[in-house]
Nucleic acid binder design. Structure first.
Lengths: 137, 137
DNA sequence: ATCAAAATTAAGAATCATTCCTAATTTTTC
DNA sequence: GAAAAATTAGGAATGATTCTTAATTTTGAT
């Protein structure tokens, strides 16, 4: 494992914010100013496929990276794009995984919602654009 | 609703393949050769936020679009990128949704795995690159 | 340690998906 | 049926990610 890889792994594992590659790059440059953007992307890809870290996709956003830890799902605010974690019980996770055969690698559970901040902001705003998000379960 | 919107809605609702914007554009041009790429993107966005259709994100792929139907999850093959559906019982879906408060819009459940075709192809191939995918539940 | 081979990097060009801009066209309203 | 509003086609612009290449670092055998 090269110094660059160690640095990138450390940044992802110590972050709780599901950082994007660009955010990881900015943080990496603090410790290693000469690191290149391409190096960050390449190592994030390597670390992802070797299972050291996890990659998350949400609509309309660059990819995010997450550390591997106890099973959890993601709360995704469709208004501001913010991501928060929620706990998933091992039982629930196993129920979900029972739907696939062997050769399962991982599972991702995302709940799309309007977060508290966006709900309040919308309450106070004139044009009420959140009305557009129809509930479709 | 304009002719372009009707056409795009129809394509998404009649497709079972979770098509990308590019695939929808190609199909749309068969019926309406003058339609522009930007029109497809703009209407997909409108239809998504009004809840007519749903947008799906998977790592390393362009966004996909899905019709709204009985609750289902997605099986995502990390080797070929293919997407298949699996049924989710209303009970399981409700258990998942119980993790968020009100203002929930939808939930997405994805199981990452190696599909049968990729597993067989890898079995017969020399370099066995699928070994790299470590199981991380 | 020492040299050659292999892997990794930095830097920036290239690519791909998506959005934005503008003038023309279509739809709506009265 | 004319003016106003909305939507479109076409293409330029942007943003995220990958690719290319030459230089640097690491590895491995002697």
């Amino acid at each position: 494992m090269t110094k660059q890889q160690e640095l990138i792994t450390g940044i992802v594992n110590s972050s709780r914010n599901h950082p994007t590659a660009a955010e990881i790059y900015i943080e990496a440059r603090q410790k290693m100013p000469s690191i290149a953007v391409g190096t960050v992307y390449r190592n994030l890809k390597l670390l992802t496929s070797s299972g050291e870290i996890r990659k998350l996709s949400f609509p309309g956003q660059p990819e995010r990276y997450d550390r591997i830890e106890h099973p959890h799902g993601h709360l995704h605010c469709v208004a501001c794009g913010g991501i928060n974690d929620f706990e998933i019980s091992p039982t629930l996770r196993d129920e979900i995984l029972a739907h696939a055969g062997e050769r399962v690698i991982s599972c991702d559970v995302t709940i799309n919602y309007i977060c508290d901040e966006c709900a309040v902001a919308n309450e106070n705003s004139a044009n009420k654009k959140l009305k557009n998000y129809k509930r479709r379960l």
